[in-house]
Design a protein around this nucleic acid. Structure first.
Lengths: 202, 202
DNA sequence: TGATTTCTGGACGCGAGAGTCCACTTTATT
DNA sequence: AATAAAGTGGACTCTCGCGTCCAGAAATCA
């Protein structure tokens, strides 16, 4: 079998996934494949050739996004006290989570949580769980070095993350625009950090 | 017009709304009307006679739920220090929010946030916003009485609510069962209260 | 009992979206 | 130029769910 000729696979799959993300996030899981094909500049058949079904397209989309989510959470390292690290973490987290785009995707995952539980689970582990875990590790180190007094680092991490993201995320998911600007984010990040450190000082 | 005879309206509408809640929460907005009719023990036509369309059925359902949500948040009042009140508030909040049923409904609202923004908005105001506001009022009073030192009560309320409910809610919405039992809830409520008071003491 | 109103339940029309089929084109290889 | 893989676009089938229609069955009042 001379398995050659024709076009080789190219970044066309990427275009399909991009389009799928765009359409599905904005219109929900019920959005028609034709729209995705149109936006991707591709025939519907091509999508089926590459992904087989809508469910698998969604699966591929989520798996790709999972990698993007996990990446930018590596925010720790300063050693002149926990303030800077915590504030930085808070800002990154807020900017990552509190965008209409993130909300649209989160809505998508939640919608899929019923029909595709494993996907939603994967998102949870790549997103919230992973970020909390890294924060917990950081807090544990700070505690070990005597800069903070933390008996339950995992719970402390939950608390900090909850303070920072908290109900803003719920609002966004419900489609309510709280209109946070960068100054607001700075303020919240700093205030959360200040109160958190006060709560966990000896 | 002798507008009498036949059956008068009865609590059959309630049965329909109950069934709608059950079905829609578990199967999503895409669930068929026939299921709802079957569970309500009613013909599909009756639903249409009473509610007109699926969208209006959902609207009625949400409006009824909004009342239920707002009610149990009146948890304040002890004057021997904020601990008991805060712990109580935390527990009520967790029990209200962290059930599979609440999560299912919340998922429903979020799913509808795109097509019916006003509904989602109403839910936000009856739920998260209202509870935070009441908590903020309580905190302001505590601050005025000198028991706590709070410069921004609204933000403090966000922080406390975020600590308590935080990522547990996200997990639930993603269909991940964290399996919190009553002891866990007690522990989290007490720990959150302790840390919060420490963070806002003079 | 008769009149009137509501409910039932099943059939039906209709639109929409998943996935398939296919004839034709495009692109790369030899 | 000949071949083979991959893509295109449009028509098509199938399923599903909303909403309607209607004939007959309660139920309620006079």
């Amino acid at each position: 079998m001379p398995r050659v000729a024709g076009q080789i696979d190219l970044a066309k799959s990427e275009a399909i996934l991009d389009a799928a993300g765009e359409i599905l996030a904005s219109r929900g899981l019920g959005a028609p494949m034709e729209e995705i094909a149109r936006l991707a500049g591709v025939s519907k058949q091509t999508i089926y050739n590459r992904f087989g079904s809508k469910a698998e397209l969604v699966r591929a989309l989520v798996e790709r996004r999972v990698d993007e989510i996990t990446a930018p959470l590596d925010v720790q390292g300063t050693t002149d006290g926990p303030e800077a690290a915590l504030t930085g973490f808070a800002k990154v987290m807020m900017m990552a989570v509190l965008t209409p785009r993130s909300a649209a995707f989160m809505r998508l995952y939640m919608q899929g949580a019923v029909e595709m539980p494993d996907l939603a689970q994967a998102v949870f582990e790549a997103g919230p769980k992973s970020s909390r875990a890294r924060l917990a590790v950081f807090l544990e180190r700070e505690a070990a070095d005597g800069r903070l007094e933390i008996d339950d680092p995992a719970l402390a991490a939950e608390f900090f993350a909850g303070m920072v993201v908290g109900s803003h995320q719920t609002a966004l998911l419900l489609g309510v625009d709280l209109g946070l600007n960068e100054a607001d984010i700075d303020y919240i990040a700093q205030e959360a950090t200040r109160r958190f450190i006060k709560a966990y000082s000896s």
